[in-house]
Computed example of a mutant assay.
Amino acid sequence: MAGYLIKRLATAIVVVFGITLVTFLMLHIVAPSPGQTVLGPKASQAAIRAYNHANGFDRPWYEQFGTYLNHVLHGNFGWSYKTNQSVNAIFAEKAPLSAFLSGVSLIVAVAIAMPLGIYQAVKRNSIGDITATTLAFVLYSMPVFMVALLMIQVFALSLGWVDPNVSQDQSLSGALNDWKDLILPIAALATTAVASYSRYQRSSSLDVLAQDFIKVARAKGLSNRLVYSRHLIRNASLPMITLIGLSLPALIAGNVLIEYAFNINGLGLLFVNSLQNDDYNVLLGYTLLTAVLTVVGNLIADLALTVSDPRIRLV
């Protein structure tokens, strides 16, 4: 176990370093200079050069990257060029709301998808299975922003069940005061996840039902309820652990589209605004955060799968 963790952590460091390097180079190649971004399009070239020189932006890229890495290792992600705030402070302000949206939508998706997938496998080729499979394929093929727009049109504008205007409070506590505003964003995020998770859960359950130990359990005279509860659910749910860990990047990416569609002041909307404003440090910080969460999610999924299934050995 210890050797496995050391190898995975070493791999994680290399992956995060590579992603940070590529993002850093892309921003400095494609985007205009920081001096032009901060001073504006009407700034003179002399003023831009002076700003870049004063802040070290005229040095070779590898020196700038080394300086940035040194700051990151000390927990400093720099300053936003547009808001004149530290990136750390901005993330600390907006991250709780984004984490809440992702966490709740993940819980809702798993709570619906796992029993639904097991039901489909047990009732294979029934009307319920065919209906759920059709809906899953339709929803899985739709991008999350399309699901969000349809939900806004149907439930907010047509039926009037919820308010289409989401609270603009940036704090999680403030947003929770108007918790009804978060129903549609969470539902949109969870819907696409349910479509994916339920398909995997159904397939996994069908594989387990075909195993010999299920046949032996039934041959012993166990009722279907005991067979499903003791043997099917746990074994069929193991692949879902890995899937959930691997889906963290998709949830984060979905947050970007959902927060933009509903105008929610979280990290996703911050990323979109930073793209439009060429706010380098915010973009770099967001990319680094996403990379770390992706690696950590995969590692947690592997460890959880090992704990859940003693047959798996980490080497």
Rank of each mutant, 00 (worst) to 15 (best):
G3C: 08
V15I: 15
V16N: 05
T20Y: 06
T23C: 13
T23D: 05
T23P: 02
L25M: 15
S33P: 09
P34C: 14
G35E: 02
G40Q: 07
G40C: 04
A43R: 15
A47P: 04
I48L: 12
R49K: 06
N55M: 13
D58N: 14
E63M: 03
G66D: 10
Y68E: 03
H74N: 06
F77H: 01
K82L: 02
I90A: 11
A92E: 12
E93H: 13
S98E: 07
L101N: 01
S102C: 15
V104D: 03
S105C: 11
L106I: 12
A109L: 05
I112C: 05
M114C: 12
M114F: 10
Y119W: 12
Q120F: 06
Q120M: 15
R124I: 07
G128W: 11
I130Q: 07
I130P: 02
T134A: 13
L135N: 08
M146S: 09
M146I: 13
Q153F: 11
S158M: 07
G160R: 15
V162W: 12
A175Y: 15
D181S: 05
I186L: 02
A187T: 11
T191D: 03
R202E: 03
S204Y: 09
S204L: 11
D212E: 10
I214Y: 11
V216A: 13
R218N: 12
R225T: 14
L226Q: 06
Y228M: 09
R230S: 15
L238Y: 04
L238C: 05
P239S: 09
I241N: 02
I244S: 04
G245S: 06
L246K: 05
P249C: 03
G254C: 05
L257T: 11
I264A: 04
I264N: 00
G266H: 02
L267I: 15
L269Y: 07
F271V: 06
V272E: 02
V272T: 04
L275W: 04
D278M: 09
D278Y: 14
Y280D: 03
L283P: 00
L284E: 00
T287Y: 01
A291Q: 05
T294C: 08
V295Q: 00
L305N: 01
R311K: 09
